[in-house]
Design a protein around this nucleic acid. Structure first.
Length: 173
DNA sequence: CGCAAGATTGGC
DNA sequence: CCAATCTTGCGT
């Protein structure tokens, strides 16, 4: 029984959505028979509200355009010409925010996430409610998490570099 | 049109 | 510690 997270889940403030994504199930379907499911274990929030670490902070460009759209869409981009990073757009239309998926169960690191899911440019703007190859399912499981500053955004400077907008799942042993 | 830098990773 | 590898955004 499939239970995708509804639009209302994503179309809220990114700081509410990000921690709640921990423990949820990311599903990647490769074809009719091959499907992989991963528990989301690490995320970071990027706010449209002035956050200089957010790609959309300098305005709408062809690359960041999708972040301005309604929550529940996929924002992927290539870093260092090598790794595809997966983000989930949040908020309402016009609100440029997104959640970076930094880690899944058994997969640590945003670049590795993109590699494991075989992401590429074609996922840009993918709709998580309609897609037949990637979506997120609900989980009733209660989770605990820790927070820390975000990684790899020193260029953004204060106060953004110190914002505790990275969320890590504490997995029961 | 040229160029510097990047939400990273893996190898030396 | 540093190269890989290529797209993006901004300056000229």
């Amino acid at each position: 029984m499939e239970s995708r997270l509804p639009a209302g889940f994503f179309q809220r403030n990114v700081l509410e959505v990000a921690p709640e994504l921990l423990g949820k199930i990311l599903v990647r379907q490769f074809d009719d028979c091959k499907q992989k499911k991963y528990v989301i274990t690490e995320v970071e929030a990027y706010s449209g509200d002035g956050d200089l670490a957010c790609h959309a902070s300098k305005g709408k460009t062809p690359r960041t355009e999708v972040m301005f759209r309604e929550g529940g869409l996929v924002y992927v981009y290539l870093v260092y010409g090598i790794h595809w990073l997966l983000n989930i757009v949040t908020g309402k239309e016009g609100d440029a925010s997104a959640v970076l998926i930094r880690g899944l169960e058994g997969i640590e690191g945003p670049g590795r996430v993109g590699k494991a899911l075989c992401l590429d440019k074609s996922f840009y703007g993918e709709n998580l409610f309609k897609s037949n190859r990637i979506w997120i399912e609900n989980s009733e499981k209660k989770v605990e998490f820790t927070i820390s500053p975000r990684i790899g955004i020193n260029y953004a400077g204060e106060p953004w570099v110190s914002k505790p907008w990275r969320y890590l799942l504490i997995s029961p042993k």
